[in-house]
Design a protein around this nucleic acid. Structure first.
Lengths: 201, 201
DNA sequence: CCATATCTGAACCGCTGGTCCAGTTAATAT
DNA sequence: ATATTAACTGGACCAGCGGTTCAGATATGG
């Protein structure tokens, strides 16, 4: 299954190989250097391709970083949609919210500079107007829904932005980079439980 | 009082005039354009001085933005330290926290792109290592103290970063720029009251 | 009115994200 | 096999950035 009727328009083999090489190179460089030192040029050199190829494939520096983030976020999205509680459906909203925020913190911690790099890419982009990051949009929608479910009287949309925004705060991000996601997770839990009410003891 | 014994080393008259012109020009440009379009060069042209002068006076783009922020934040700092409650000392921690966060939101709203511009300056700075913004440090210390006072059992330091981080979130910041600080203030209040407990009815 | 330390600003630097396009190459039809 | 063709490639190129430099202008103290 999954065979296209019109098998045309597939990605060419060399293009696919180069795309993987570029993503791997970017990954590696971000693991070793802060985002502002990882220029598109350096990624291209490390991947063994020309700079034009990177832009042809990903459109912009921002596009590259977004692709990298999507790769990492996919697993979490699936666990939320169809996995077991409390991350997946079935648990009360407070518990799902605490579990989800904890998972996001852990994901951010495991991926070091990536979140900061995407941020940096958006901040320095020269040509893109104001593109919303689809991963962030998905996370925000999920958090908003859980808050609304538990506390219909508050501004869930705004509070969801507020909570998720902590990933972009430098003091918190640097702790995440050092591998400590537990501290952020605990604070998420304190706020979520204060807002939605502690789950029945 | 306040007169220096050695009145030497005063700022030269033309230098002072130019400094004011630069700050005013930056202010004006930030009111009309997003931060990434307000380059140091453009500020210099608008102020009628050379680019070198701007750097001589403020050290870097980041230094310029920090100076601008300090100007605006000074008034709030004073109200917190010695003004009437609930902003100043005397009220219970919850009320002081809600009042302070509301004031910060309003300040951010009134100053449009400034917060984002400072953020942008730090993100794109080429020469500065990692300088902490003294205004932010002060705000963070205040929020941390208030949280600790009301809830000694939580990680006040982390939660303070989390709350203040919302100012850097693009979706929230754009609403602030449009003048709506009330929405953020209400969400701050919901979280603060959830955390510290609603003030006695 | 002079001496001089400070201030000024245009030219300059290295580097960035992004564009361009002539030439190469993989996939398909014959 | 070979021809056809559309997609891919990559290095030269660009405008713009933050930041540095330093010879000349200028305010100020004596």
């Amino acid at each position: 299954m999954g065979n296209n009727d019109r098998m045309e328009r597939r990605e060419r083999a060399d293009a696919a190989r180069n795309r993987r090489a570029i993503l791997r190179a970017a990954e590696e460089l971000l693991r070793l250097h802060p985002p502002e030192q990882v220029s598109v040029e350096r990624v291209a050199v490390a991947a063994g391709v020309g700079k034009g190829t990177v832009f042809h494939r990903f459109g912009s520096r921002t596009g590259l970083m977004r692709e990298l983030m999507s790769e990492r976020a996919h697993e979490l999205d699936q666990a939320v949609a169809e996995g077991p509680p409390p991350l997946g459906p079935g648990a009360p909203p407070v518990e799902r919210l605490v579990a989800f925020l904890g998972a996001v913190a852990e994901l951010a911690a495991r991926n070091g500079n990536l979140v900061a790099a995407h941020e940096h890419a958006v901040a320095t982009s020269r040509s893109e107007p104001r593109e919303a990051n689809p991963i962030y949009v998905g996370w925000h929608r999920h958090v908003t829904a859980l808050i609304t479910e538990g506390r219909p009287d508050v501004d869930a949309d705004e509070i969801a932005h507020l909570l998720l925004g902590s990933l972009h705060m430098e003091p918190i991000a640097s702790r995440l980079r050092a591998g400590d996601s537990a501290r952020l997770a605990r604070s998420f839990a304190a706020l979520a439980e204060g807002l939605l009410g502690r789950p029945a003891p």
